[in-house]
């Protein structure tokens, strides 16, 4: 059974890019437009991997990760954060919040799939 990836990003362009790359690699893709929306999606279903942006309205990536990690259903779900710059501070904050790994934007589809595989097996 193919794995499901939840992508959380307020940019439609980014969501579509993730969708194309992940679908091409055989993943099912769920989408959310910000952290709050992401949590709503996770109320009803599980994901094998979550990819989230950091800068988002309503609930940003850090807050989203913290919420997911507090939720017993999803606390073991690997979360990759999208960072635009290879910004050490943001990476560290994301890791403290419970992020599993990161993807540096702009990403190459191969690198993306590689990172997803590296956390989900």
């Amino acid at each position: 059974m193919s794995k499901t990836v939840l992508t959380v990003d307020d940019s439609r362009t980014m969501r579509e890019m993730l969708l194309l790359a992940l679908q091409d690699a055989g993943f099912n893709v769920l989408q959310a437009e910000d952290g709050m929306h992401g949590l709503e999606v996770l109320k009803g279903r599980s994901a094998d991997v979550i990819i989230t942006d950091i800068n988002m309205p309503r609930l940003d990536g850090f807050g989203f990760i913290e919420h997911v990690r507090r939720d017993t259903t999803h606390r073991a779900t690997p979360i990759l954060v999208l960072t635009t710059e290879s910004d050490a501070e943001k990476k560290a904050r994301a890791r403290n919040a419970g992020a599993t790994g990161w993807i540096v934007k702009p990403f190459h589809p191969v690198k993306l799939v590689d990172a997803v595989r590296r956390v989900s097996g």
């Binding site: 990690r69 606390r75 073991a76 779900t77 690997p78 979360i79 890791r95 419970g98 992020a99 599993t100 790994g101 590296r118 956390v119 989900s120 097996g121």
Partner: peptide, 8 residues
């Protein structure tokens, strides 16, 4: 706790 998995 960050959902990394040695097996993976």
């Amino acid at each position: 706790s960050s959902a990394n998995e040695p097996v993976v």
